[in-house]
Simulated scan of single mutants.
Amino acid sequence: MRNLIFTAVLAAVSLFGLTAQATEYEAGKQYTELSSPVPVSQPGKIEVVELFWYGCPHCYAFEPTVNPWAEKLPADVHFVRLPAMFGGVWNVHGQLFLTLESMGVEHKVHTAVFEAIHKEGKKLATPEEMAEFLAPLGVDKDKFLSTYNSFAIKGQIEKAKKLGMAYQISGVPTMVVNGKYRFDIGSAGGPEQALQLADFLIAKERANAKVGQ
């Protein structure tokens, strides 16, 4: 009986906290609720997607804030980086990211790629230039080039394009929670505020899932 009361109190406190936060966040202001939800990549988990471009200074500036947050997310949350594909060099850099991710080395060189573009002035606009840059970081040149030009990566590019269209993004960095809620740093009020909003929407989805059980 005591356990039941304690559980009920916890539920009430959680609901109160979510309600209190809800007064600060409103669909149409800090975030947009998508009219057609987009399926998540891992059903059963709350998905948080960060859409970015390696050439975007705002995405680069967001890195020191979003990375520690993403590393501490609970087990029921799945964090995904997705390159925005708006054509030209956006697509080239997106293909770079998808290649690194496919090779399983993205987590090792992701920051270095950002710094090469924004601190060292590298363009990384051709696969050959990318391969030369990545080789000293332990990425095999031949494997990188063959993967970059592979049919599998072309399929991933098309998938990324379709997701960007489904999310109805117009710029980066943009975040999407569980395929339902889209927002950017500007609408949220800043980098830290964007992650607070993400936390709120994660809690909202977690509460919705419990109600539906």
Rank of each mutant, 00 (worst) to 15 (best):
E63N: 13
V77Y: 03
L100H: 06
F97M: 13
V40H: 02
V48Q: 09
E101G: 05
P39L: 08
P68T: 05
H107K: 15
L100D: 08
E71W: 03
S102C: 06
P39S: 08
G44L: 01
P37K: 12
H110M: 04
W69D: 05
H93W: 02
A70S: 05
D76K: 00
V92N: 14
D76P: 01
L98M: 12
N91W: 08
C59D: 00
G44K: 00
Q42L: 13
N67S: 14
S41H: 10
E71L: 08
F62S: 05
K72T: 10
V92W: 07
L100M: 07
V105M: 05
E106A: 15
L82S: 15
F97R: 02
V40C: 07
E50I: 02
W53C: 11
H58F: 09
C56V: 01
F62L: 04
L98P: 12
A61I: 07
P39M: 05
G44P: 07
H78L: 12
K108G: 01
K108P: 05
V105A: 00
A84E: 11
V109T: 01
G55Y: 02
V66N: 04
G88D: 14
P64E: 00
Q95F: 10
P57Q: 13
T99D: 07
S102A: 15
F97S: 13
I46E: 10
T111H: 14
L51D: 12
V77G: 12
V49K: 04
P39D: 09
H110A: 04
V40Y: 06
P57V: 11
W53F: 12
M85K: 11
Y54N: 04
E101V: 07
V77R: 01
P74C: 12
Y60A: 11
G55K: 02
T65Q: 03
L96R: 02
S102E: 14
V38A: 05
Y60F: 07
I46S: 09
V40F: 02
V80W: 01
V66E: 03
H107D: 15
T65C: 02
N91D: 15
P68R: 06
V48T: 12
S36H: 02
L82P: 08
H110I: 05
V38N: 06
G44D: 06
E71V: 06
W53R: 08
T111C: 06
R81V: 06
V89Y: 10
L98R: 00
A84R: 09
V49A: 12
H107A: 15
G55P: 13
G87R: 03
S36D: 12
P68D: 03
S36I: 05
T99H: 09
C56H: 00
Y54H: 08
G55E: 01
F79C: 12
T65H: 04
V109S: 05
E63P: 10
P83Q: 07
V77M: 03
H93P: 11
K45Q: 15
L96F: 08
V92E: 14
E50A: 05
G55H: 00
Y60R: 00
P43V: 11
F86D: 04
M85Y: 14
P68I: 06
P64M: 00
E106N: 11
E47F: 06
N67G: 05
G44C: 09
G94S: 11
N91A: 14
H58C: 08
E106Y: 09
